[in-house]
């Protein structure tokens, strides 16, 4: 019985292994630039984020110490907090600000939050994604997986129809990647700036003419968890560089 189960799961395991890091879908020039901080504009945000980490009386540093202590954290997010809420890095930072620093939240997509998120994520750069999906996370994962597989929008496309079946092919001049979130926050040339994964997901929703959900919404958070799980073993690339 157990052997049959394993056999039944085998194709799934194979397809999961075929997921490739986002950087492998970049042009050679962009890929080289992503690896070179001196030519990667996203590092302006990283530098600002590291400054914010140290700033103020009740700074991040006053509790956590040097930001290098955040090494590995981004590989484990989104994560379920003690009160049952699913938090991505942005959400965790905002909550820490309000609850522990007694400060007003930065606001999703603010330059300050993007900077701090990028600086924290950067500490895990190159480390393998390994987000926990057991316990309280399991139900969120299933929700995100269902969203990923559901055809939606006027163009009636699921995430997987492009990012599983057609990765490596071209939409106009762009190569379709496996759709991992590992490079976010990322500097996108189209944006001329840094942006969050949820901003990118809103662009995907718009592309298939589907409802765009708010930044930080449950729909995008659970999808982010599924994408992080799908990326297990893949390196964190944040801050990424994208077209």
């Amino acid at each position: 019985m157990r052997r049959w189960l394993l056999l039944a799961l085998w194709p799934l395991a194979v397809s999961a292994q075929e997921v490739r890091p986002s950087r492998e879908f970049l042009s050679p020039a962009l890929r080289a630039q992503q690896e070179d901080p001196s030519r990667h504009p996203g590092w302006l945000w990283v530098d600002e984020g590291e400054a914010i980490w140290r700033r103020g009386e009740r700074s991040c540093q006053s509790c956590h110490g040097d930001i290098s202590a955040m090494r590995g954290v981004a590989t484990r997010y989104p994560a379920v907090a003690s009160d049952g809420a699913l938090l991505n890095l942005e959400g965790r930072i905002e909550r820490c600000r309000v609850e522990n620093q007694g400060a007003a939240p930065f606001g999703y997509e603010s330059e300050a939050l993007l900077s701090l998120t990028a600086a924290v994520a950067r500490q895990s750069r190159g480390m393998a994604m390994s987000v926990p999906v057991d316990g309280a996370a399991a139900a969120f994962l299933e929700e995100g997986h269902a969203f990923y597989e559901t055809r939606q929008g006027q163009l009636n496309l699921s995430c997987g129809q492009c990012h599983d079946a057609n990765a490596g092919r071209r939409l106009r001049g762009d190569v379709i990647s496996h759709g991992l979130g590992t490079g976010y926050p990322a500097y996108r040339l189209e944006w001329n700036g840094m942006g969050s994964l949820h901003r990118r997901l809103r662009a995907c929703s718009l592309g298939v003419r589907a409802t765009q959900f708010p930044l930080g919404s449950r729909e995008y958070l659970t999808l982010e968890l599924y994408l992080a799980h799908r990326a297990r073993g893949m390196p964190v690339e944040a801050p990424g560089l994208r077209r």
């Binding site: 055809r151 939606q152 006027q154």
Partner: peptide, 23 residues
């Protein structure tokens, strides 16, 4: 994978701007 260019029924989460209109 190709979208239906002249259909409005049986679609999920259509952007309100396109709801009820075929492509």
């Amino acid at each position: 994978i190709m979208p239906a260019y002249h259909r409005t029924e049986g679609l999920n989460r259509v952007d309100p701007r396109y709801l009820g209109r075929p492509v």
